[in-house]
Design a protein around this nucleic acid. Structure first.
Lengths: 197, 197
DNA sequence: TTAAATTAGATACGGCCGTATCTTATATTC
DNA sequence: GAATATAAGATACGGCCGTATCTAATTTAA
């Protein structure tokens, strides 16, 4: 009896590959995951993978997007800038907690050669940049009178993202205490220091 | 006539290798520099290189230390915290200006897998951490009464280094305008917000 | 001066990367 | 249903990594 040589295609094949990538990520971690290994685990070849994703980082990001159950950020009006920021960091911490240690570090390292910081998070460039998360908070805070102006310099608006990434780069855990420290010791003082134009 | 098979050793050999590494760095940039290429250019083999440096990043750092003419930071009391900080960033900018674009990015990326942020700059861990640069400034500023306390949280003392690295990671140039913005929009507000204990 | 210890140099290995080429199965179109 | 287009699968390549092993030159100790 001859073997059926059924060939997977399109979405079916892609799902199989991403499943394999996800498994490898869980089993071996980002560093030890290889394109060839994923291809083998998915019973295909790396040629097929390279047709879809340009490198390991993008492949893993795709797998994370599909199976990582990363909730997209829900902007909530908590009634204060401090609450908004803590809420944001809390959600980020929850996302990070789902990742194996070193995964994000590895992705960042791999992409550091090619991209600028604003795009380091993968889809961050297309959908919601850090700025787009922060700006509404600042708008509300200004409307409440908590800060003098919602029109803050770029470097200031990007600061939360920078601090988040910095926290990830260090081996730190982004505990609640760390979140509070970041918000109270750094972010609020900076935001509040801006004077109305 | 038989060739003299003179064998270089120790410091002589090491200098030859680092010279080759430096040349390659200038000629091809960090990304395209390879260990094997440096070995070949130095007329030796990579075995010899791996006996001295564990990876490309360390090799390049060694070459930079030897030939990069990176002036070590000179702490100067300019009379104000703002002046001190701008002076620091100015010196850092001068150092960065000597590096080919992408060199520092590459080094950071390569080491991101293995180290925490405080050690990313190579010898930064042994000699002068960022904290050790900043703390004297804060001490002086507190003595002058510019800030309420020199006893600032770790995350705050490390902030200048984080912002510097962030600036480098982006493709930005660390212009004077950027330095001023960092100091005035972020660092001074943060430092000044700390209340005496 | 001879023997012992170092260390440079040469070579080879397995692993993975990223690309190219070719075939063959499957889908699409006529 | 046959012709055509598309994409999977197989294989091979050159490049570099990092390690291991062996040799031979050179230094150091005796």
């Amino acid at each position: 009896m001859a073997e059926k040589k059924k060939r997977r295609r399109g979405a079916e094949l892609e799902t199989a590959i991403l499943t394999a990538a996800w498994d490898q990520l869980q089993a071996k971690g980002y560093h030890d995951l290889t394109i060839e290994g994923v291809a083998a685990a998915a019973a295909t070849t790396k040629t097929v993978l390279y047709r879809r994703w340009p490198d390991k980082a993008r492949l893993v990001i795709a797998a994370l997007s599909k199976f990582g159950e990363m909730p997209s950020y829900q902007g909530v009006d908590t009634g204060s800038l401090r609450g908004d920021l803590l809420n944001l960091f809390g959600q980020m911490a929850a996302v990070l907690a789902k990742l194996r240690t070193g995964t994000l570090r590895g992705i960042l390292a791999d992409r550091l050669d090619k991209l600028d910081l604003g795009q380091l998070m993968g889809k961050a460039n297309t959908s919601h940049t850090v700025m787009e998360l922060i700006q509404p908070m600042l708008d509300r805070a200004a409307a409440r009178g908590e800060i003098a102006s919602a029109d803050q310099p770029d470097r200031v608006v990007t600061l939360p993202g920078v601090l988040l990434i910095n926290e990830v780069i260090g081996q730190r855990q982004l505990t609640v205490a760390a979140q509070v420290a970041i918000v109270d010791e750094i972010l609020l003082p900076v935001f509040q220091s801006v004077t109305a134009k």
